[in-house]
Design a protein around this nucleic acid. Structure first.
Length: 488
RNA sequence: GCGGAAGUAGCUCAUCCGGUAGAGCGACAGCUUCCCAAGCUGUAGGUGGCGGGUUCGAGUCCCGUCUUCCGCUCCA
């Protein structure tokens, strides 16, 4: 899979340009920037937060409003610590790592030893290989890092690059952030900030099923923050330590997971394409190596300026989570299916999309630099071609000049529509400058009130993408805008 | 975490061999302007990432530190 993701430098230049644009026009700021920022944490600015909210609303509606068998919840970020034992996050996401001092390469300790064991097996030394793996597992269970290092050194396991056995001490990288619950330090319990929102759904499975009288198959959707201590968190919004997920867990009858997995794959891709994006910008990536909880998994990848990257994951999670919660909590996580007169633990298909990644996807897909030069004059513009439904500002309202009563009429228009959708009023600078500023934040429409408006109640409405203008009656503005923002 | 590069006004950058910072764009106020940025006038913005050292004197030299970018490594 080596380098099919790499992009020419002009494309990484585009990524830089997008990052700059996001900061310059109030979409994204580095977190606590006045203190030099905080690595891999970002804040959403005045237009970014509008865009983000619009994406959320659109997803939420497509799940809970457009499906009668999907409901939403909003579970807390703090959860009982046992949740993460049951989910496997405590044991499966704290990998010991080791670095070779000469090549500076970093390895997962278990991978390093397993590779060595495989080599031994190839040479026919099966017994020795098994022995090493046995020792490794025993040491891993005890978190005996000194012992693991010793095991590596005793066997003279070398780095593939440097061919030396010059290793650092073993260090552990924890996926989850922890904090203390309880006001007195000594009595406080260590709890985690959730690394995924899904568990909030699983622990509420029975509550929702019973109080909502839900019948399988049904889904529970949730939007919320999650936190992960990534080893390397970079690439702008793509890999953040604090991020937001939009997840839906779909509970189904065991044995039907194949069909439902395929169904949701298709359904989710349709959602993405509903933005009018070029289908060639998307691809599925099927997982060969599956996470500990899945029996099938794929990603929907989008062709970012930095290459095809995962935006959404669709996982067939089996009954792993509910079964484990049943075990740890001693509460029956079962559903009585009246059709077959039987109890069972439902299987689950998960769709999990990164909100921040979706945001970055929409931004990347919308960001356009246009050369508008004519023989007489050099000209260019940057325009965010957002789907109108997602645009942070729907309508900009300008008086052509700020006199002759034009601002008064413009403000009447503003007051008429500001309750229906986000409007922006501006009366300074030349009309051209104002148009271009609106292009930069992606407002799909600008209306301009001019002297003719006073005579016949018509205004010009200017379309963002084509820059075309048309003259319409002042009472038709709302209808034109509404039609566009319904049409995603 | 490692290697490389960089950090000067909101943005892009300049300041030659150390002598207490300057431009364009932008912003703001006003003028002009009857529909697509770069007409006119004026104003405000920098303890040169931060800390220390050398020096009569440091944005400029040295050390440390933080942050960002590129590459490597790792991954729900």
């Amino acid at each position: 899979m080596a380098n099919n993701n790499s992009k020419p430098s002009s494309e990484t230049g585009k990524f830089q340009a997008i990052i700059s644009h996001c900061k310059e026009y109030g979409f994204i700021f580095p977190s606590s920037e006045i203190y030099d920022g905080l690595q891999a944490v970002y804040d959403y600015g005045q237009w970014g937060s509008e865009l983000k909210k619009n994406i959320k609303d659109h997803w939420w509606k497509s799940m809970t409003q457009m499906h009668e068998n999907i409901v939403g919840i909003d579970a807390a970020i703090f959860m009982h610590p046992t949740t993460w034992k049951a989910s496997g996050h405590v044991d499966n996401f704290s990998d010991p790592m080791i670095d070779n001092k000469d090549s500076k390469k970093r390895y997962r300790v278990d991978h390093l030893l397993e590779t060595y064991a495989d080599e031994l097996k190839e040479k026919g030394e099966t017994e020795k290989a098994e022995n090493i793996l046995e020792q490794m597992n025993a040491l891993l269970v005890k978190d005996d890092y000194a012992g693991l290092k010793q095991l590596i050194e005793e066997n003279k396991i070398t780095c593939g690059i440097s061919k030396t056995c010059n290793w650092t001490d073993i260090r552990q990288f924890n996926l989850m952030f922890s904090t203390q619950l309880g006001s007195v330090a000594e009595e406080a319990n260590e709890i985690y900030l959730r690394p995924e929102t899904a568990q909030g759904i699983f622990v509420n499975f029975l509550n929702v099923q019973k109080t909502g009288r839900m019948k399988i198959p049904f889904g529970i959707a949730q939007i919320g923050k999650a936190f992960r201590n990534e080893i390397v968190a970079r690439q702008f919004l793509f890999r953040m330590r604090e991020f937001e997920q939009m997840e839906m867990q779909f509970f189904i009858k065991p044995g039907t997971q194949k069909e439902w997995y395929e169904y949701w794959k298709e359904e989710r891709l349709k959602w993405h394409l509903s933005f009018g994006t070029d289908p060639a910008k998307y691809r599925f990536h099927d997982h060969i190596k599956l996470a500990h909880y899945a029996d099938a998994a794929c990603d929907i990848e989008y062709d970012f300026p930095i290459g095809f990257k995962e935006v959404e994951g669709i996982h067939s999670r089996t009954d792993f989570d509910l079964r484990n919660h049943q075990e740890y909590s001693k509460k029956k996580m079962q559903y009585f299916d009246t059709e077959i007169n039987q109890n069972y633990i439902p299987y689950v298909i998960e769709t999990s999309i990164g909100l921040d990644r979706t945001f970055l996807m929409i931004i990347s897909n919308s960001y356009t630099e246009e050369d508008l030069s004519t023989p007489e004059k050099q000209d260019s513009r940057v325009v965010m071609k957002f789907p109108p439904q997602l645009a942070p500002v729907k309508l900009a309202i300008f008086p052509l000049v700020k006199k002759d009563g034009l601002p008064e009429i413009a403000k009447e228009v503003l007051n008429k529509y500001r309750g229906d959708f986000k409007c922006f009023y501006e009366e300074k600078d030349t009309i051209g400058k104002r148009y271009r500023r609106m292009d930069a934040i992606g407002a799909p429409f600008c209306v301009t009130i001019d002297h003719q408006t006073k005579e016949d109640n018509t205004v010009t409405i200017r379309h963002r993408d084509s820059m075309k203008q048309e003259r319409i009656h002042i009472d038709r503005i709302g209808e034109v805008v509404q039609k566009a923002i319904r049409g995603v």
